[in-house]
């Protein structure tokens, strides 16, 4: 190849073409490990799930290789156990609604606690910020399950919070916190808070404070300056944080199970039930894919909306 290039002087433009080709090749080579991992550990399993969702459940788990759409139908519709009428699968719908509601509440709570925290860190002197950021990541050092069980020690009847409240006389008998929706919300907010703080911090960090000063010069009050200047500028961070919190919340499994007492299923637990005691793998696969489709639609909608906004600007 190089000999040829030496012997015959390249046509104008051929050299660039060759360079571009090589550039392209090395880009593919660099991307290969990531592509392989995504292919083997994300795309392939997804395909397996897609296939399984269209098969018939085996008697004791697994699947029988016989085509069936029952799994998909059962996501939304069911026959009544006792009089065989076809109706909405309200068990699945109400479980999905519970997951959705809890994810929304958690996202709002992490916003309420996360934005001021991020603001606080970003407005410290530059050399101190590293320290505060480091503190935010400390919880990641311990396993999620261990942290969740530690929360039980805080909120149980003879737990730290109840003992303190009893001691200083605010309450006469322990408050029931364990195994309540409060416990799940508390746990999820704690677990997902760093995922909100970090992107919001990145946005506040980039914020040009001269703009805020300018707003004040133009007689904007604190609230107006926040609403009209700061909020639009840190919005990308807030949206990124909300997505990072909301999506894993929808499929959360451990926290609701340990803190919620398992009395009410979440979507993640419903899926698990189908692969365990329910022995209905196709339904489990269909439920998982449904959840994923809903998340995808929401994300695509978000991308559309934000790109349109950018065009408007």
């Amino acid at each position: 190849m190089s000999d040829m290039a030496l012997n015959t002087p390249p046509e104008p433009g051929a050299l660039e073409l060759e360079e571009a080709r090589q550039d392209n090749r090395s880009r593919w080579l660099l991307a290969l490990p990531a592509l392989l991992i995504i292919g083997c550990f994300a795309t392939l399993p997804l395909l397996v799930m897609l296939v399984y969702a269209f098969l018939t459940p085996g008697d004791y788990g697994n699947v029988v290789w016989k085509f069936s759409t029952d799994g998909w139908v059962a996501v939304l519709l069911q026959r009544d156990i006792f009089d065989d009428t076809l109706m909405w699968a309200d068990a699945h719908l109400s479980i999905f609604w519970r997951s959705l509601r809890l994810s929304l509440i958690t996202t709002v709570l992490t916003l309420v606690f996360g934005v001021p925290t991020a603001w606080f860190i970003a407005t410290r002197p530059r050399e101190k910020r590293q320290f505060w950021l480091f503190l935010v990541t400390v919880p990641f050092w311990t396993n999620l399950l261990v942290r969740t069980i530690a929360i039980q020690e805080l909120i149980r009847s003879e737990g730290v919070i109840n003992l303190i409240l009893l001691k200083i006389g605010i309450i006469d008998e322990p408050i029931q916190m364990m195994f309540t929706d409060f416990a799940i919300g508390f746990g999820m907010t704690y677990v997902y808070l760093p995922l909100m703080v970090l992107p919001v911090y990145a946005a506040v960090d980039k914020l040009d404070f001269r703009l805020v000063e300018a707003a004040h010069d133009l007689y904007a009050g604190r609230w107006t300056a926040f609403r009209r200047v700061i909020l639009p500028l840190i919005k990308p961070g807030i949206i990124a944080g909300s997505i990072l919190v909301f999506i894993p919340c929808l499929g959360a499994y451990v926290t609701p199970r340990v803190l919620g007492g398992g009395k009410n299923l979440m979507f993640g637990n419903l899926i698990e039930l189908q692969f365990g005691a329910g022995r209905n793998w196709p339904l489990g696969a269909a439920l998982s894919l449904t959840l994923m489709a809903i998340v995808m639609v929401a994300l695509i909608y978000y991308v559309r909306v934000t790109s349109r906004e950018r065009e408007d600007v």
Binding site: I81, H92, S94, N264, L265, L270, L273, A277, G278, N280
Partner: peptide, 17 residues
Amino acid sequence: DPDTQALYTRIWTDLQK
């Protein structure tokens, strides 16, 4: 038997919905 078990799973899901 599997049919009865499937019935029980439905009742169980109803219970935990």
